[in-house]
Computed example of a mutant assay.
Amino acid sequence: MKVTIAYIEEPPFGWTEASGIATGADIDLADAVLRTIGVTRIEHRPTSFSELLPGVESGRWDMNVPLFVTRERANRVAFSIPVWGIADGFLVRTGNPKALDSYVSLAKRADARLGIIAGQVQHDTARASGVSEHQIAVFEHQADAIEAVLCGAIDAYASTALGNRIVANRIGGSKLEAVEHESGMKGKQQKPPPGAFSFNRRNSELIQAVDKALRSYLGSPDHRARMAGFGLTHNEIDPALAG
């Protein structure tokens, strides 16, 4: 049995090593679960974020690495049960020159520009928080958005708080820093949005098998140990287990 899973270059969730091998937290989780259900051949297909949904819809591959679950996306693809819950954050130049700690804070500064990957949920979240379209620069790949922050073309790149921490650590604190968003909830803890694998809606057999395996595996000692190797902790895992 062979399954092809598409991924994007977005550490710590997925990336391609110099050797050409795909790795990352989402890749590792997918491989562990697929082997559990009897998959003997796993093919990893690199793609762009904007091609994830069209690709699985048209049958170019069998499943996608986890992405945030939204109603619009659920009308196009079938999602597994959630596998993580992760809040947004900004990647900014060290020192955070414009003191950006939320979409609202960025919206209040007409001179602030925000980078977002095409098709990602951060675009809608930013607009809903008052960020205007002329403040937003859309990129196809994460690497291009990061370079834009480094060279000053944009002031912040919006992605997951976890992913931004990993990127900042890899590049070095002298250039970039990750900023977690202020919740604005006055002490109330807001549950982070869930992410899940996605499939062609007609592939019910694979969906059901993956969900069954995930229910047994998520939160297990082996799962937590594997994810810890990529920087995911109970902060990202437990929200998915809460249902």
Rank of each mutant, 00 (worst) to 15 (best):
L91F: 05
R93G: 01
T94C: 04
N96K: 02
L100P: 02
L100C: 07
L100S: 06
L100Y: 12
D101H: 08
D101P: 00
V104C: 00
A107R: 09
R109C: 03
A112D: 01
A112F: 04
R113L: 07
R113N: 00
L114Y: 06
G115W: 13
I116G: 02
I116M: 04
I117Y: 04
G119N: 04
Q120T: 07
Q120N: 04
V121T: 08
Q122K: 00
Q122Y: 02
H123R: 10
R127H: 05
V131W: 00
Q135C: 05
I136P: 04
A137K: 06
A137H: 06
V138K: 01
V138G: 01
D144I: 06
A145D: 08
A145Q: 08
I146A: 09
I146L: 13
E147G: 06
A148N: 00
V149H: 09
L150A: 14
L150N: 08
C151Y: 13
C151D: 15
C151H: 14
G152S: 10
D155W: 07
D155P: 04
A158K: 03
T160Y: 02
G163E: 05
N164V: 02
N164D: 10
N164F: 05
N164A: 02
N164G: 11
N164S: 03
R165W: 01
A168K: 01
R170A: 10
R170L: 11
R170M: 10
I171G: 00
G172V: 07
S174W: 06
S174L: 13
K175M: 11
E177F: 07
A178W: 07
V179P: 03
E180L: 12
H181S: 05
E182C: 04
E182R: 14
S183F: 02
S183D: 11
K186N: 09
Q189I: 14
Q190W: 11
K191P: 12
P192E: 10
P194W: 13
S198Y: 03
F199N: 11
Q208R: 15
V210M: 14
V210L: 11
L214D: 12
L214Y: 10
L214M: 10
R215N: 13
S216Q: 15
Y217G: 05
L218K: 06
H223W: 13
H223S: 08
A225I: 09
G229Y: 15
L232W: 03
L232A: 08
H234A: 15
